[in-house]
Amino acid sequence: MIIKCIAVDDEPIALNLVASYIEQTPFLQLVDKCTSAIAVLRILQENPDIQLLFLDIRMADLSGMELAKIIDQGTSRKDRRIIFTTAYDQYALEGYKVGALDYLLKPFNFADFSRAAAKAFEYFSMFEEQKISPVVQTAGNQVEKNYIYLKVEYQLVKVDTDRILYIEGLKDYVKVYLDNEAKPILTLTSLKNLEEKLPTDKFKRLHRSYIVALDKVKAVTKNSLQVAGITVHVSEQYRDVFADFLRGWV
């Protein structure tokens, strides 16, 4: 996924720094840069697909805060967001009031910029996922999808849930093991977040580090199960869930 950006700052040195950071970030695309907040209105009109503004607050013609209140972003338009850049920390609260995604306090380095950019990537990934995989409803009832989208590096990957064998949670990542795939998919998310996306009648979390596809279980004991060549020992907190599964397994 590529996020289209514009950099706005009335100080040329600061503007060029932000522009260079954007160009060094694989999932960001610099559409334009300018030193005037008023010029932004024209640029946005000519480029309605711009999604992210790196916007200075104190500028001569129109402040970034005033511009944020004029343009569509945040609540009224969820596919356009702002990251403020400023040397004045007193604007932080006001920035969040106008729906800013983040707030970079000058002077900031590439590491600071990358953290804000990563927050933007996370936001737009979730937005795209909701847009391309809406919940289907028939006769007023929610219908479960047979696929999910996972963030893998800088793209969204569609995964057929019928192919999932089991899911292993690590510290900051999750490994998703698929049928007929030698290597798992590695995605930056939490096991809890992924658990909420999966159909509850097909997947169960039976250990703090594992979610199992119930129809892929090959063998069970009173406190463990085997799936795809591994043994998952059921944690104490999931004993009741496992007991319900055992009653319907045979």
Rank of each mutant, 00 (worst) to 15 (best):
S36A: 06
A37N: 14
A37K: 07
A37P: 10
A37Q: 09
I38Q: 03
I38V: 14
V40T: 10
V40S: 08
L41S: 08
I43E: 08
Q45A: 08
Q45I: 07
Q45N: 14
E46Q: 15
E46S: 12
E46D: 15
N47T: 13
N47R: 12
D49S: 14
D49T: 10
D49R: 10
I50D: 05
I50T: 05
I50M: 02
Q51T: 14
Q51R: 15
L52D: 04
L52A: 01
L52W: 03
L53E: 12
L53Y: 11
L55R: 14
L55C: 11
I57R: 08
I57Y: 05
R58T: 06
M59F: 01
A60T: 13
A60I: 08
D61I: 03
D61G: 00
L62H: 03
L62R: 03
G64V: 03
G64W: 02
G64F: 07
E66S: 07
E66A: 07
I71Y: 11
D72G: 01
D72C: 05
Q73Y: 02
Q73P: 00
G74E: 12
G74N: 05
S76L: 11
R77D: 10
R77C: 01
K78I: 11
K78R: 12
K78S: 08
K78Q: 13
K78C: 12
D79E: 06
D79M: 00
R80N: 02
R80W: 09
R80S: 00
R81I: 14
R81E: 14
R81K: 13
I82G: 04
I83Q: 11
I83K: 13
I83E: 15
F84C: 12
F84H: 15
T86Q: 01
T86W: 00
A87M: 09
A87R: 14
Y88G: 00
Y88H: 05
Y88R: 11
D89I: 09
D89V: 04
D89H: 05
Q90M: 12
Q90K: 13
Q90Y: 15
Y91K: 03
Y91A: 00
Y91R: 12
Y91G: 02
Y91C: 00
A92S: 09
A92F: 00
L93M: 10
E94I: 07
E94Q: 06
E94H: 01
E94G: 05
G95C: 11
G95E: 03
Y96L: 11
Y96D: 13
Y96T: 04
K97A: 05
K97N: 10
V98W: 07
V98L: 03
V98Q: 06
G99S: 05
G99K: 02
L101N: 10
D102M: 08
D102Q: 04
Y103H: 10
L105V: 05
F108K: 04
F108M: 03
F108D: 09
F110M: 12
F110Q: 13
F110I: 10
A111C: 01
A111M: 09
D112L: 05
D112T: 01
D112R: 03
S114K: 08
R115C: 00
R115F: 00
A116H: 12
A116P: 12
A117C: 01
A117D: 07
A117V: 01
A117F: 02
A118Q: 15
A118D: 15
A120N: 09
A120T: 04
F121T: 10
F121P: 07
F121S: 14
F121K: 15
E122H: 05
Y123E: 13
